[in-house]
Design a protein around this nucleic acid. Structure first.
Lengths: 141, 141
DNA sequence: ACTATATAGTCAGTCTTCTTGTCCATCGTG
DNA sequence: CACGATGGACAAGAAGACTGACTATATAGT
């Protein structure tokens, strides 16, 4: 069944990223943090932006941010254009973790590439890219 | 990036299944319950089997089973071959829910099939099936 | 047959994560 | 400048998972 295959592949990827991060010394982050990093390292983001991006309440996002603040993955700076807002900024460690996650994800993808032929891998990748919608990445099932 | 596409596609699928289930009247189940149903409707299963399958403790699995018992999705019967064990059995409603989930999943897959050409869809599906490992389906990220 | 160990299930307590509800300070628009 | 909207914080609580401890039954080794 196609649906089950998608879920198994996604499971494999998420597990692979977690494992790769742990092996690289980042054992205090969960998958949802990776999604948060992706948002923060892109356009400037606030806690409320993060909440919208992850599909959780801003209070939950604030807890998540606290967690990452305490562990030194990010800092907060006053937004020069909005006195209420505080911009989330990745620290060196935060950037290192983001990089590590990308590498771990790439490791898994490379394994797939070797299991399939380069030809078939490209076909699969193109198909996935075509049906992937740019919406939120569900942090939890 | 391939990895992100996989996660987005999986998110789309899980959300689609949840939505399809709710539309069919099953609004008191979560994705993890679908994984539980899949296990129960296959080989005979006990709570402990379920725990192993889902990668959670047997206490957590017992809570999940309680939830489904209370809502009439399954019943428990004494295992004739093991006085300690109780076999989980899907009720009519449980089977209906399983069917509904399969249909909802299929709806999403059909949308993909229409977005891609039948040719490209088949390529993607085959690639996914080839790299999907038969291990557990991670119920939570 | 007896003992030791493993396993199915339950009870109790705790932790983490996310929720709702409420509030204040600040922003932006009429 | 008043007013609704928004970013963020505080508090309380629900859900779901965890650890630890216990009973009853099964199974393997002697």
């Amino acid at each position: 069944m196609t649906a089950a295959a998608v879920l198994r592949v996604a499971t494999q990827l998420v597990d692979g990223i977690q494992e790769g991060l742990a092996r690289r010394g980042f054992d205090d982050v969960r998958p949802v943090h990776g999604f948060a990093f992706a948002r923060i390292s892109g356009t400037q983001a606030t806690t409320a932006d993060l909440a919208a991006h992850l599909g959780i309440t801003k209070q939950a996002a604030a807890q998540l941010v606290d967690h990452l603040l305490q562990r030194g993955y990010l800092t907060r700076e006053a937004d020069p254009r909005d006195g209420r807002a505080k911009l989330l900024v990745l620290t060196e460690r935060g950037r290192a973790c983001t990089t590590a996650a990308e590498q771990a994800a790439n490791d898994v993808v490379q394994r797939w590439k070797q299991q399939l032929s380069p030809q078939r891998f490209a076909e699969m990748r193109d198909g996935l890219n075509q049906i992937a919608v740019p919406g939120r990445l569900r942090p939890a099932w």
